[in-house]
Amino acid sequence: MYVIIAGGGNSGEALAKSLVTEKEDVVLIESDKERAERLAEELDALIISGDSTNIDVLKDAGIEKADAVVAMTGDDKTNLMICEIANQAKVKRVLARINEPENEALFIQAGVESAISSTSSIVTDFNNVLRGKGSKTVATLASGAIEVMEIYVGVKSKIVGKNVSEAGIDRNDAKILSIERKGEVIIADDSRTIKKGDILGVIAKSSSAKKVVEHFEKK
């Protein structure tokens, strides 16, 4: 996977290190020249010193062949501009760090796949989304025949905006038990609407778990 990270601050650097460890191709753009020079010495990645909102800089970074662009600067306006350019360049996956939670709607309107608040475990969250790890098994029951899972709902998931009853899963395979939203856990009755960023608590047959996860993550 070819990933461009715009912003080489602490979070951008940590994400780059994590992706490099996973053997991904990483390009990191950092506006501060001295910091960019240090990052170039420490990271096994292409480091570009420049303005991430400059189309020529993004072209030098290889935006036309990028699988993903992650806007990680400390300024939401800058991150939004980067995302808009990436969408215009038809980058498959566009993600952004949100510094002010009230700006989340702007990123959703811009078609950003995942906008994650800097107050969360941001590096882990971005890495999970990029590498398709938006779900995890938290427990097994009945000698491993049943799995209890947490499944992250991305902004482009086909179940966003649907009620639990409309989620489209076979209830012989799985059932949505709960929805975690902004730190609050909600019991998932059939009329409850599923929103972007929700974490679903799902119980499923182990034999059907992979199919269930793929269904929820499908766009």
Rank of each mutant, 00 (worst) to 15 (best):
F216T: 09
G9D: 07
I179N: 02
S49M: 01
E42G: 11
S191K: 14
E184V: 15
L28S: 12
V91I: 02
V112F: 07
S120P: 00
E34R: 10
L46C: 11
I159R: 05
A6W: 03
G9R: 06
A105F: 14
S18G: 05
V123C: 07
I194H: 04
D32V: 12
K218N: 15
E102N: 09
D173K: 14
N103Y: 05
T140Q: 14
N99V: 08
D190L: 13
L141S: 03
L177P: 00
L28P: 00
T21M: 11
L43S: 07
I187P: 00
K156S: 15
I47N: 06
I122P: 03
F216H: 09
M1I: 09
V138A: 09
R97F: 07
M72A: 12
N79F: 09
D170C: 12
K136I: 13
S114Q: 13
T140C: 03
T73L: 02
S208R: 14
V27T: 15
D170Q: 11
K133I: 00
A105N: 10
S143P: 03
D67Q: 08
R171C: 02
V213S: 02
E30V: 09
E64A: 13
V69M: 03
R181F: 07
G8L: 02
K196F: 00
T193H: 06
R192L: 15
L95R: 10
G144E: 07
